[in-house]
Nucleic acid binder design. Structure first.
Lengths: 197, 197
DNA sequence: CCGTCTTTAGATCAAACACTCTAAAATGAG
DNA sequence: CTCATTTTAGAGTGTTTGATCTAAAGACGG
C-alpha cells in the first residue's frame, strides 16, 4: 500500500527545539504558532504528529528525560567507584552556573510550577526524580558498604537530590555563582570517608 | 476638596489573593478576569490601583516578601543564639512537606521560571535571595566565632540557601516526604559543633 | 441640595490563543 | 501514468487574553 508523502522534519529535532522553548518560556509562554515558526514545521503537521499542546509538552518532557536525565543516571550507575560516581554527580551542579540565557532544567521547572491536574502535570518529572533518587541510594549504600562514606546512605542520597534541585533554581535565577560553588563544596563534605579513629 | 467614592476593597487583601493565585498558576496562568472574579474587585479598579499585569505581579512579589520572607529573615536575625537561629531556619524546610494544594514559594517559582527581560522578571526574588544569603552568612559567622560551628561559615550559609530552594521544589513537586526530612537531617549535620579533640 | 471628584460596573476592542478545515503537493504501489 | 495515501500550506474557527472607554454610583465640601 501507499506510504504517502514523506515528512520534511525529524521528530526528535523538533522535540529538542520544543524542549529549549519550554525551558526558556514555560508551558504557557510557548504558543503553538511560535513552535511552528521556530521549527519550520507546519501547524497541521504538529497536530498530526504530537496531538494537542499538553501532549506536546509531555513528549518534550520525555525527550528531555532521554537526552538529559538518562545519560546522567547512566553515568551515576555505571561509574565503577561508587564514591567517585557520587562526587561526579555533585560536581555537575556547577554546570548550572554556566547556563545559556534562558537555559535550565525542564524537570525542575515542571516540579516548581506544575499545577495539580493541569495540562502540564508534573508526573513525568516526578517519575524521573524517583529514578534518580533510587540511583543515588544504590550508590550511597555501596559506598557505605565499602567504608567510603560516613553517615546514613539514604539520608545523604536525599540531601544530594534536594541539593540538585536547589542548584538548578539558583543557577536559573542568576544568583551569585559562589552560591552553587560553595554548596557543592559542602555537599562534597557529605561524601567524605569516616574519620580514622 | 472632594475625596470621591471610597474604595470597596483592601489593597493588601487583594494582593494576598493574587499571591496565592500566582503561586498556584504562575504568571501566565492567571488572567486578569480571574483575579477580578476571585477578589471581587472590578476590572477598572484593578488597573487604577496596580497598573498593568506585570506591575501587578511585581506588587504581588513585594507583598509576598513582606508577609513571608521578611518575618523569616527577622526571626533568623533576631534569635539570640546564632546556631539555634540557623537550626530553626533549616527546620522550617519541613513545612514544604505540608503545602496546601497549589501552595509553594513564590520566589522559588519566580527564580525557576523567570524569563530574562520578560514581564515577570526575577529581580525581586533575586534581591530577597541576596538578603537571605547575607543574613545566613552573618549568623554562620557568629556561630563560628562562638565555637558552635565547624567548617567555613560562608560555605555553610550558601549550602543552606541552596538547600532551601531545593526543599521548595521538592515539596511543591510532591516528591516523597522523606526527601525533605532526610535533607533537613543532613543539613543539620553542617550545623554541628566542632568535634572535641 | 449642589457640584466635584473618585470609584465602580459593564460594554467593548484588537490581538493572540489553541485548534480545525480545505485543498494542493509529494511519494509509493499497481 | 494513475490511484491511493500522507504530508503540507494557509485560510479560518471560536474563545480568551490584556487593556480601554463610557457612564452610572457614591461620598465629601460648599
Amino acid at each position: 500500500m501507499a506510504l504517502g508523502r514523506p515528512r520534511q522534519f525529524e521528530e526528535n529535532h523538533v522535540l529538542d527545539t520544543m524542549v529549549r522553548m519550554f525551558i526558556r518560556y514555560g508551558f504557557e509562554g510557548v504558543s503553538i504558532a511560535a513552535v511552528c515558526k521556530e521549527t519550520g514545521v507546519s501547524l497541521q503537521s504538529l497536530y498530526n504528529t504530537f496531538g494537542d499542546k499538553a501532549s506536546l509538552y509531555q513528549r518534550a518532557l520525555a525527550r528531555y528525560g532521554e537526552t538529559a536525565a538518562d545519560p546522567m543516571i547512566a553515568e551515576l550507575l555505571n561509574t565503577e567507584d561508587p564514591i567517585k560516581a557520587l562526587r561526579d554527580f555533585v560536581k555537575k551542579f556547577e554546570l548550572y552556573n554556566e547556563l545559556p540565557e534562558g537555559g535550565g532544567c525542564l524537570f525542575t521547572q515542571s516540579l516548581a510550577s506544575a499545577v495539580g491536574g493541569g495540562p502540564c502535570d508534573g508526573a513525568a518529572a516526578r517519575s524521573y526524580a524517583n529514578r534518580i533518587r533510587k540511583a543515588l541510594r544504590d550508590r550511597t549504600r555501596q559506598a557505605h558498604a565499602a567504608g567510603q562514606l560516613d553517615g546514613d546512605p539514604e539520608l545523604i542520597a536525599d540531601a544530594l537530590l534536594a541539593a540538585s534541585y536547589g542548584a538548578a533554581v539558583v543557577g536559573r535565577g542568576g544568583l551569585p555563582k559562589a552560591v552553587i560553588k560553595n554548596a557543592v563544596k559542602e555537599s562534597m563534605k557529605l561524601l567524605e570517608p569516616p574519620a580514622k579513629s
